[in-house]
């Protein structure tokens, strides 16, 4: 028996049951994680391993994962992890190319499932057939899309990059690995709410971002704060 089978169930889902040329859609990797176990966000924290998903199909362009807000998970020894318990859906934006017909989407997901006393790596092959046709929404990803952190740009300021979140008090900041390696982040109270300040120590790698998650009971508001694209010469 594969001991990982019962721990995490992986399913590839689509926002639409059929596709037509030029269509935008979402693909979603749904992970159902057994009680007591967790899997990891892009930046797993003090230990662990990021969950990864790669999907592709001829005629389909797939963007980078848009992560839902992770939870902060404590481990003995003062260690902290960032990840997901229960059910989580990782969304991938996708665009159907103009000449595309039916799509055979294939891919692979990898994760590390851990509980307090042990970790077990797992992976799954993913496959999804999307026939050509009128774009009928499936509804399968509606809740995950609605829960996506709200995008907001970080704007260059005198002492780094800033984003203002009016009316928000109390934030947890989750820098992605690419940002954590290159910058210090902090949330400062402001007269309007909270000011997020990113102070780079080095040039952040592409895809660097942070998630800001409001404190309090679920569902918690969350923001996806991204770096402005580099100025073209």
């Amino acid at each position: 028996m594969d001991p990982t089978a019962a721990l995490v169930t992986a399913t590839l889902l689509s926002s639409h049951a059929a596709v037509s040329p030029g269509q935008e859609l979402w693909l979603g990797l749904r992970l159902e994680v057994a009680p007591g176990w967790h899997v990891y966000w892009d930046n797993p924290g003090d230990s662990g391993l990021p969950t990864t998903v790669e999907v592709a199909a001829p005629g389909l362009r797939v963007g980078p994962v848009r992560w839902p807000a992770p939870a902060l998970l404590a481990a003995p020894g003062g260690l902290w992890n960032q990840g997901y318990e229960g059910e989580v859906t990782l969304l991938l934006p996708a665009w159907v190319e103009d000449e595309a017909q039916e799509l055979q989407v294939t891919g692979e997901a990898r994760w590390l499932a851990c509980r307090a006393d042990q970790c077990i790596p797992g992976q799954a092959a993913l496959a999804l057939r999307l026939p050509a046709g009128a774009a009928a929404p499936t509804g399968a990803l509606d809740a995950a899309i609605a829960a996506l952190p709200t995008p907001a740009p970080l704007s260059p300021g005198a002492d780094g990059l800033r984003a203002s979140l009016p009316g928000v008090e109390g934030l947890h900041l989750f820098p992605s690995r690419a940002l954590a390696d290159a910058a210090t982040v902090q949330a400062l109270p402001s007269p309007e709410g909270t000011e997020v300040v990113v102070s780079p120590r080095a040039e952040p790698a592409p895809g660097a971002h942070l998630l800001a998650v409001a404190e309090g009971p679920a569902p918690r508001r969350a923001w996806y704060l991204y770096l402005p694209p580099p100025e073209s010469p």
Binding site: S47, G48, G78, L79, C114, D117
Partner: peptide, 12 residues
Amino acid sequence: TRPYGCSVKYPD
């Protein structure tokens, strides 16, 4: 560099 792996199993 950023280490990866299992958490060190420190006392509770």
